[in-house]
């Protein structure tokens, strides 16, 4: 019985396993190998074993700098905007409306980020917000193709992903704790700082980690709203592989990006252990 069961399991896992090996594990291994190789003069990759590509990483300093300043800033801004909304949904809305309102937050995240981002070309372009500001007497503000535009785009794009885990953490919170605190005469702000905030930290950490990780790999939003002036590592990668066809160096940049993400995940894992929470807060829906 046990034998047939494990055989059935192996059969059920076979298609997925084969798929992962051919289109995930093998390609990532190729990237790692190529990152130690050399550039083929006609483009592409030439075998070798050198650390030259990694030594050359500082030549893409601007892309890493933009990513590593705008990604934390965007994460922080998303957190500041998302927290009160998650709080409202979890603790203030009647149960009847909760699910509907939550779905309304999550649905935009699953629709085309490409179309949602380019809508901001209107809002930030000459006839949008700058025209409004001009009517108010603030002249010649340029918003489109600036770091600000990219920041707005990434906060807008990833806000739902921040709201959801914080909502889950706040929703699980034992409300009788808050009642007890208020019965004992604790002012609301103190019970927020001492009870609600610490208990929602797992959600805050999960949301921040998810948003930050996705932001570090972002390509579309800087491409559409940054106008080639504000580029991320993702944009540098597209340029290296599709324009200059420097596969070896591009692979090294990709490996560096993954290493940054792994560091963030490791920091997250340490932080979440301190708050003693499980990882099952990671929700994608």
């Amino acid at each position: 019985m046990a034998m047939t069961q494990s055989r059935a399991r192996a059969l059920l896992l076979a298609p997925a396993g084969l798929w992962y090996v051919t289109l995930l594990v093998f390609p990532l291994a190729v990237v790692l190998i190529f990152s130690f190789g050399e550039r083929n003069p006609i483009g592409g990759y030439a075998p070798g074993f050198t650390l030259e590509q990694y030594a050359n990483l500082p030549s893409r300093f601007a892309a890493f700098r933009n990513t590593l300043t705008l990604a934390p800033l965007g994460t922080l801004a998303a957190l500041i905007i998302a927290y009160p909304l998650a709080y409202y949904l979890a603790l203030r809305v009647s149960p009847r409306w909760k699910t509907t309102l939550l779905i309304l937050v999550i649905v935009p995240f699953w629709t085309s980020i490409l179309i949602r981002s380019y809508a901001w070309i209107y809002l930030l372009g000459g006839n949008g917000i700058p025209a409004l500001l001009e009517a108010l007497g603030i002249d010649s503000i340029r918003l489109i193709n600036t770091p600000f535009a990219v920041l707005v785009g990434i906060v807008y794009g990833y806000l739902p992903l921040m709201v959801f885990p914080i909502y889950v953490a706040l929703d699980k919170l034992d409300k009788s704790l808050l009642d007890a605190a208020s019965d004992l005469g604790t002012p609301p702000w103190r019970s927020f700082v001492q009870i609600t905030l610490p208990l929602s930290m797992p959600g805050v950490l999960t949301g921040s980690m998810l948003v930050f990780i996705l932001l570090t790999g972002e390509f579309l939003i800087p491409a559409i709203l940054g106008g080639g002036k504000v580029f991320f590592v993702g944009n540098a990668l597209v340029d290296l592989f599709l324009q200059s066809r420097n596969w070896a160096f591009g692979s090294a940049v990709a490996v560096a990006l993954i290493v940054i993400m792994l560091i963030v995940v490791a920091l997250y894992a340490r932080a979440i252990r301190r708050f003693g929470a499980s990882r099952d807060d990671v929700g994608i829906m």
Binding site: L23, L24, P27, L28, V30, V31, I213, L214, T216, G217, E218, F219, G234, L237, V238, F241, G250, A254, L257, I258, M261, V265
Partner: peptide, 11 residues
Amino acid sequence: MIPGVVIGIAA
């Protein structure tokens, strides 16, 4: 978790 841009390039 791996960004789409890296998955695309690797493939």
